[in-house]
């Protein structure tokens, strides 16, 4: 039902793939480095190159089924289209008399500069979406949390609390559906701000119960051991170096 949409299903194939085995922190680092790298230029090519490479890597090295990838990013690509069009139409370059005019539609003047800016922005959003989708579809949540705690020194309370909360999301989405249904069956319109109160009560109650259950199992009582030890592996270094090389190449090509 709603669960599949909200939480991607990282199956055994994706988990065993190259991208699935790379430490999630490495993938996060790559995403961050690429984001910064793309900020160095306004050119449209580097983000497009990175998008293409990300998608190919997701399919080839991440074991993602093409349909699964398309389902995840297609709606977001529509949003990109919206961003591009809005930037094209409302660009500050359009009224600028010095800008190169491409065409006019009634009162609307579209300039070369506006097209460049809109395309550059669209390509960047596109690459961020693609990187995010491939990350989500190849990263096992448990692996991510374990890495954050063991290698990233994130507080276990925060990390495991987040993991548990994340698992409650589909349940809360179902709860919202039932709350709306109840309103309808009592002769009221379905949407009402009061729904938020019901949802909040549910979320707080769930968190409360979970905290009790975690405490009852000795969470936070002292030093912990780990059931799934996580270590850096050679693969992490290989993928990190390759990703940096790709970024540099993409930036050089566009010069």
């Amino acid at each position: 039902m709603t669960a599949g949409i909200l939480i991607p299903d990282v199956g055994p194939i994706q988990r065993a793939s190259v991208l699935g085995r790379v430490n999630p922190l490495v993938k996060l680092g790559i995403a961050l480095a690429w984001l910064v790298g793309m900020g160095l230029t306004l050119d449209v090519r580097p983000p497009l190159i990175l998008t293409l490479i990300t998608l190919i890597a997701g399919l080839q090295l991440g074991g993602i089924a093409p349909t699964a990838l398309a389902r995840r990013i297609a709606p977001l690509w529509l949003a990109v289209l919206g961003i591009v069009l809005a930037n094209l139409v409302f660009s500050a370059h359009n009224p600028d008399p010095l800008a190169t005019e491409l065409f006019r539609m009634g009162p609307l003047r579209v300039t070369q500069e506006a097209v460049d800016a809109a395309a550059g922005l669209g390509a960047r959003v596109l690459s961020i979406i693609s990187v995010g989708a491939v990350f989500a579809l190849t990263t096992d949540a448990t692996f991510l949390i374990d890495s954050l705690v063991q290698l990233g020194r994130v507080s276990p309370r925060f990390a495991y609390g987040t993991l548990a909360a994340y698992q409650a999301v589909p349940k809360l989405a179902d709860d919202l559906g039932t709350l709306r249904a109840t309103r309808r069956l009592r002769g009221l319109r379905e949407w009402h701000p009061r729904l938020i109160v019901g949802m909040l009560v549910r979320a707080i109650r769930h968190a409360d119960q979970l905290a009790i259950a975690m405490d009852a199992r000795g969470f936070g009582s002292g030093p912990r051991s780990t059931y799934r030890p996580v270590r850096w592996q050679p693969l992490d270094a290989v993928v990190a170096i390759a990703a940096l090389a790709i970024l540099v190449a993409a930036l050089v090509v566009s010069r």
């Binding site: 949540a141 448990t142 495991y160 993991l163 548990a164 698992q167 409650a168 349940k171 769930h206 119960q209 979970l210 259950a213 975690m214 199992r217 000795g218 969470f219 936070g220 009582s221 002292g222 030093p223 912990r224 051991s225 780990t226 059931y227 799934r228 030890p229």
Partner: peptide, 24 residues
């Protein structure tokens, strides 16, 4: 549903043991 912490069954069973710092 509200007392399961970890995503996978094995990890969840191990959760209490980790908190007591049992060896792997």
């Amino acid at each position: 549903a509200s007392q399961l912490v970890m995503e996978r069954v094995g990890d969840d069973v191990a959760f209490g043991l980790e908190n007591l710092a049992w060896p792997l």
